[in-house]
Design a protein around this nucleic acid. Sequence first.
DNA 1: TGCCCGCCGGGTG
DNA 2: CACCCGGCGGGCA
Length: 192
Amino acid sequence: MDENNTQIMISTYKYKNLYFAVGVSKAGKIVWIALPQENEKDAIADILKLYHPDQNIQFEVSNKYTDIAKKVCRVYNGEDVKFHLDSLDLNVDKSKRSSIKTQFERDVLLEVAKIPYGEVRTYKQIAEELGTKGYRAVGTAVGKNPFPIVIPCHRVVKSDLRIGEYRGGSEMKNEILKNEGIKINGDKITKK
DNA sequence: TGCCCGCCGGGTG
DNA sequence: CACCCGGCGGGCA
């Protein structure tokens, strides 16, 4: 592949049979973070899903951003690693290849980004912060989070404190929360 | 427009 | 507890 045509750089990091992957733009911004996968191919495929098949995206896998993938891994495993929001491509662009399609999705993600380590908020709380009753719409937007783990959508739970859904499965959500020290009994958060 | 959603709360047994 | 259902609003074909 011609390096000069590379539009996106993908780096992966393996830990305990799980592959973490990040996609980074030419501009050096993270455009997508994969949920951990059992093999590297799936992790890379998760990044490329962002792009339409007919976009013929140029990408290259290298170790250039392995440190970022490693940081994601560390957060997954319960470390309170800080990420700068400016390392993420938070642009809203419906037409172009952009991780975030609408202003509403962006607003939701920025609200979720405020949830402190080791705490949870409900979908309803996020909606109310944004001044809407579209609780389900918040769930939908959270579900499209291009930066899982870094923007902690796993910390958003149902109003009755049940865990709720997750792209990677509720078991994975459960595990990340557990790694953060959040107490869970069955499918419910046990403390406020 | 119509339909799908990582939701919510009130209802019933 | 278990379903069940109407309401809500954002996004997309």
